[in-house]
Every structure is written in structure tokens, then in C-alpha cells.
């Protein structure tokens, strides 16, 4: 069954536990700057927005990759294969959501891979602002709608 991260910014308090969990799982240290999820702080609007890859169908990153280093798995997750990534960064400019980022330390790009089906950010979120649920459930529609706002390029008639 397709599962996805469903983010409800209204519940986010800006505590960054998601970034901490992500960075430790992926980088072996608490290091939010290398987290695949980032919480944006709209202080003047009293809003916090966790933000990460939506594993979009278009997969701009995957299409743009010149070395086939980004692949889609059976669950629709776009994974970066570090052995194939040459660090050309074309995917970082191709992803219109800006959710593929370059990691200077490794010379590779990093993106959310849903931790292989058990996303650490969702487990760490104390307010359920980030939930990992079946895509059929309410909320995913919203996420897709949000993704489509950024839909671009080829338009099928």
C-alpha cells in the first residue's frame, strides 16, 4: 500500500525534533542543517511549516539525473544511489520544490527517502504534525494539491 508523509503545519510548534531525528538517522549526528526535512518559521504569521520531498510522480530530480542515480522504488520513493551520484547537482536545480540538496561533505546530493518505510521524522514529531499514513487517508489529497501547485513543464492535453 502507498504510504506518505502527511504534514499538518497547523500542529507544528517549531521544535525541530524531526530535523534532529532525520540528521541522526542519516548522518550519525544531530545536525539539522543536513536534515532532509526542514521546518520553516513564519514567525510573523505564527506558523511553522515542515517541508520535505513529496516523492512527486513527476520526479523532476530523477528525470534530470544524467547518471541514473535516482530511482523510484516499488513504493514510489525516489532514492539517490550514492555509488552512481557524481555530484553534478543538476537535480538540485531541477527539483522545483527545492527538496534535493547538495551535501558538500560527501559531494553527493541528499533527499528524503522515507527511511525505507519508517520515517524517523514522523516518529519523532511530538504533535503529529508529521504523520506517515496510507495515502488513501484524508490529508494526502491536500498534499497532492499542494504538489500540483508547482506542477509544470509538460502538460498532457
Amino acid at each position: 500500500m502507498q504510504r506518505a508523509l502527511v504534514i499538518d503545519p497547523g500542529k507544528c510548534t517549531g521544535c525541530k525534533q524531526c530535523e534532529l531525528a532525520c540528521s541522526y538517522v542519516k548522518e550519525g549526528a544531530f545536525n539539522p542543517s543536513k536534515s532532509r526535512i526542514r521546518v520553516f518559521d513564519f514567525h510573523q504569521n505564527a506558523r511553522f511549516v515542515p517541508y520535505t520531498c513529496t516523492q512527486c510522480d513527476e520526479a523532476w530530480c530523477q528525470q534530470a539525473c544524467p547518471t541514473n542515480a535516482i530511482t523510484t522504488d516499488a513504493f514510489g520513493v525516489k532514492n539517490v544511489n550514492d555509488n552512481l551520484c557524481v555530484g553534478c547537482k543538476v537535480c538540485t536545480i531541477a527539483c522545483p520544490f527545492g527538496t534535493v540538496n547538495y551535501n558538500v561533505a560527501t559531494g553527493k546530493v541528499i533527499k528524503c527517502d522515507l527511511c525505507g518505510g519508517d520515517p524517523a521524522c514522523a516518529s519523532a514529531c511530538p504533535t503529529d504534525a508529521i504523520a506517515y499514513t496510507d495515502v488513501e487517508q484524508a490529508g494526502f489529497d491536500k498534499m497532492q494539491a499542494w504538489a500540483q501547485k508547482t506542477d509544470a513543464g509538460a502538460l498532457q492535453a
Binding site: T13, G14, C15, Q17, L20, A46, R47, P126, T127
Partner: peptide, 19 residues
């Protein structure tokens, strides 16, 4: 009061965001 805010790593989030 518009929202509450947590400081870094805080799972309590007592901070007040007001207008």
C-alpha cells in the same frame, strides 16, 4: 494568542505567539 511555539528540541512548547 495565535499559537504556541517550542524552542529547539522542546516537546512541551509553552512559548506564546501573540498579536
Amino acid at each position: 494568542l495565535l499559537a504556541n511555539q517550542g524552542c529547539f528540541a522542546c516537546t512541551i512548547a509553552c512559548g506564546r505567539i501573540s498579536k
